[in-house]
Amino acid sequence: MDVRADPTRQLVRLRGRSYVAFVFSPVVPIVEWLAEIDATLARSPGYFVGKPIVLDLASVDLSSSAIAHLLGSLNERSIRVLGIEGVGEERLGANMPPLLTGGRACVITRNEPAQKPEPEAKPKPTSLLLDSPVRSGQSIVFMEGDVTVVGSVGSGAEIVAGGSIHIYGTLRGRAMAGVNGNSNARIYCQKIEAELLAIDGYYQTAEEIDETLRNRPAQAWLQGDTMKITPLN
């Protein structure tokens, strides 16, 4: 008994689609023509990437091996040829792109992105205000000027400012002021328990900060090349 289920037949659906291809028409001497291609690539690398390329060999008389060599040279330049036209089919090898006929000329429109108008230059802000606590692990970097924090700066957090740093809360983390070389920058805080204070590269760690200052409002500033930390009020 022959038990055989007929496989359900899938309909093959054929669709047409047209693309605009670049047509390369090499001229002799091929070497000079390739040099011209290289010059184009030097000006805009990747110009032909992802674009369909057709090779029109009508104006040259190349043997099968010469065509193979030309295809190889283009391949080296990352140019993949989609099809070839203007040559007898007998000259094309089995592993070459297929012969194309019936191409129509058209104008290639280059859709380059329109130049965006330059946004009007706003004056850059010279201070940064943060109205929530700065948590451990957060890093606030503001090179353009002062940083003000309404809240505390947690242990393991850091504030880096081009100008001064003002903290309306407890400073438990690191504060680095005047990092652009501004030795007039200062650090102010309501309660000092800092891990590290730095102004213009001069720094003090928690160990070096006077114990009597701890838990009090304080400011840090530079006098020459020594950092002064003094109580506020």
């Binding site: 929530s132 948590r135 451990s136 957090a157």
Partner: peptide, 16 residues
């Protein structure tokens, strides 16, 4: 304890 509190502070920052 300090280590737990500091880690919690970090997590709060991530929640935000």
């Amino acid at each position: 304890e300090v280590s737990s509190v500091r880690d919690s502070d970090r997590i709060i920052g991530m929640l935000d």
